[in-house]
Computed example of a mutant assay.
Amino acid sequence: MRLLRLSLFIVLLIFSYSLHAQGLFKKKDSIVTKSLSESWELDQKDKNGTFRLNSYKPFYILPLQWSNRINKQPQSIGSEPAFEEPIDYQSTEVKFQLSFKTKVLQSFLFGKGDLWMGYTQTANWQVYNKKLSRPFRELNYEPELIAIFPLTFNVFGFKGKMVGVGFNHQSNGRADPISRSWNRVMLHFAVERDNFQVYLKPWLRIGSGSEEDDNPKIEDYVGRAEANVIYKKNGHSLDLLWRNSLSFNENHGSIQFNYMYPIRNNLRGHLQVFSGYGENLIDYNHYQTTIGLGISFVEW
């Protein structure tokens, strides 16, 4: 409880300092907001060559994440519970995410395409659970390979910026009965208008229905596509991520909201709210709502 109170104090201190230092959406000159072209080096003027580390998805740590229904007894569809008795997990834990990408091939295929490698890792850490020796409840590893091509068109004021295709692997690196992994071929499409960026990513799962499938029907719960709408202004970011199974019978999915606001340079306060299935892989078929408070470190 002492560590929990300390973490709560730190988070409240960060939020209080930021709100005192600036009004909502007040300009902060040290914050640089990246366009889609700058993030993915789409235009010739933004090309930076290969094998340079770049930010990818949000890079954050949430010292406090609370779940209204923590998963104490993981269970795959069609299987028995992984453990005979529920695990005594606490509803409050730490969550963090690391994410970066690097270009491995520039201007291939008639000089138009770039090939990127990405890596994202998320962790749910029961750091306040002294009774269980503060274990990592779940670690997810997500490497991917993405071919991106620039676009130039306008529809209703939105500028088409890029299209691509990628191979995505996600796993938790655990042994049975709590092993979880899947492979996907993902399409990438993005448009931009003023301070708005919109990403659309439908995907096709590879290897569904095999005898070695350790998370059957994951696409029916986590989804078959996602839409990510991002609004950025003066260092503030509002991010709405929606995933859906695209099923008319039993429609599942999730929605996640992130709000990041500037504190100093690239340091931001971070609020995250999630509701639905698949907060992580071990919870792919587990419905919950989570609220997290913390900090983000870089623009993505």
Rank of each mutant, 00 (worst) to 15 (best):
Y141C: 03
V32Q: 12
Y119C: 00
S55E: 05
I148G: 07
E41L: 11
L64I: 15
K28M: 12
K72Q: 11
K47C: 07
R134N: 08
T102Q: 12
W40H: 13
E84A: 12
P81G: 03
Y89N: 05
T102C: 09
V127Y: 11
F25L: 15
S91W: 10
K57R: 11
L145I: 14
N54T: 03
V127S: 08
W116F: 08
N48H: 14
F83G: 04
A82Y: 15
P143H: 12
Q90T: 13
K103F: 03
F59T: 06
K130H: 15
F51M: 06
F59G: 03
F158N: 01
S55H: 07
W125R: 02
L105Q: 02
F51N: 03
K161C: 02
G113R: 01
D29M: 05
W116I: 00
L62P: 00
P74S: 10
L139H: 06
V163T: 14
Q75W: 04
P58M: 02
E144W: 06
R69S: 15
P135G: 02
G164L: 01
L24W: 14
L24S: 09
Y119G: 00
R137Y: 10
Q44R: 13
K159R: 15
L145C: 08
Q44S: 15
N54M: 12
D46K: 12
F51G: 02
G78V: 08
K27L: 08
K34Y: 11
K26C: 05
Q106C: 04
D46A: 11
V165C: 02
I77H: 06
L24K: 07
L105S: 08
R137L: 07
G111L: 08
L24Y: 13
L24E: 05
K28Y: 15
Q126C: 03
P58I: 01
S76Y: 01
M162A: 14
P143A: 14
Y128P: 02
N71P: 09
Q97R: 06
D88M: 05
L42W: 13
R134D: 07
